[in-house]
Computed example of a mutant assay.
Amino acid sequence: MQARDVMTSSVVCVTPDTTIHALALLLVQHRISAAPVVDENKHVIGMISEGDLLRRDEIGTEKKHVRSSWWLEMLGTDRGAGAYIKSHARTVGELMSREPVCVNEDASLADIATILETHHIKRVPVLRDGRLVGIVSRSNIVQALASALIAQPEPSAASDVEIRAMLMGELAGREWAFPGRNIVVQNGIVHLWGTVWSSDQLDAMRVAAEGIPAVKGVEDHTIPYPIMPGI
C-alpha cells in the first residue's frame, strides 16, 4: 500500500501569518493535534503541533528561566531565547518547526513507518508535484492494518510438508531463526526443538509459525542455550 491509499485528503493547514490563538481554535475545533504550514502555492514550509503550545505566557505555563553557568552565559548559548519564543510568539511562522519531513503520494507504508520511527514524529505531509495533497498519521497506518485483518481468507488445506516448507521460507535469512532449523510439523502442529538464546528468539519463532495460515498450533520443546561459567 502507498501513501495515497491511506492518507487523509482533507487536511487542515495554516499559514505562517496564522495567529497562535487562531491555531489553537483550529486544533480544538477539528480535534487534531498538529497542522502543516503552507505558503500561497500549497508548498509545505513547516509543521506546528499542540506540543508547541504547551509553554505559553497567557496561561502561566511558560518555562521559567534558570540562570546558567557563567561560561554558557559568556558563550551566549543558553539564555532562554528559545523558551521565550515558545511562550510569547504571536504567529505560527515564529513558532513552527521548519524543514518538515514530507513524502510523495507513492511512498510505501513501510517507508512511511520507518520515517515516523526514525524522526520520532506522529504524522507526515503527503505531496504531489511538491504540493500538499494529504497527510499520513500513525492512526492511518493502524487503520490500514485493521482493514487488512477484517476479512482474512479461510486457511487452505496444506500438508505438513508444505507447512514446514512455508515456515522455512519465512525464516530464511533471519539471524534469530533456530540453528539447524529444528522444526517438525505433525498434523498441522509446529514443534520447535533445540536450544534458544532468548525468549525473544522463541517468541519470534512462534509468531512466524502462527503466521502460516494452515498451522493449528505451536508446541515448544526448546531448552535455554547453556552459558559457560564465567561468561
Rank of each mutant, 00 (worst) to 15 (best):
G169S: 08
A144T: 04
G60I: 02
G130I: 02
S68L: 01
R138G: 01
L167N: 02
P226G: 06
S9H: 05
V161Q: 15
E50K: 05
V103W: 08
E162L: 15
W176A: 05
L23R: 06
M1N: 04
A158F: 14
E175Y: 08
V38T: 03
V6Y: 04
K122P: 04
M228G: 03
K216E: 12
M228A: 15
T18R: 03
N140H: 04
D106G: 00
V184T: 12
H221P: 00
A214T: 13
L127K: 01
Q2Y: 13
V103N: 06
L116K: 00
K42R: 10
W193Y: 14
W70P: 01
A22K: 09
W70V: 14
A3C: 05
W197Q: 14
N182I: 06
A24W: 07
R79F: 07
E105T: 09
G51H: 10
T195H: 11
A3V: 07
R67Y: 02
G194R: 00
K86N: 10
R138H: 00
V161M: 14
Q143C: 06
A110G: 03
T77E: 11
L72P: 04
T195S: 07
A83N: 11
A35S: 15
I135R: 03
V218K: 00
E105I: 07
E154Q: 14
I150M: 07
G188N: 11
T77Y: 07
I121T: 10
V196R: 07
G76T: 13
I183N: 02
V37H: 10
D129S: 10
S147K: 08
S159N: 14
A35D: 12
D5W: 02
L127C: 01
E175V: 03
A158E: 15
D17H: 14
L25W: 09
E99Q: 14
E62T: 01
A165W: 07
H43T: 14
A81D: 12
G230V: 03
G211A: 03
V136H: 02
V218W: 01
T114A: 08
T15I: 05
I150R: 10
A110I: 05
G173I: 10
A3W: 06
V184I: 12
K64S: 13
R206D: 09
Y225G: 03
G194C: 00
Q2K: 14
W193L: 05
L27S: 11
V196M: 06
R56I: 11
L72A: 07
A22W: 02
I85R: 13
W70G: 00
G76H: 08
T18P: 07
M205S: 12
V185L: 04
S199Y: 03
I135H: 04
T195Q: 12
S159I: 15
G180I: 10
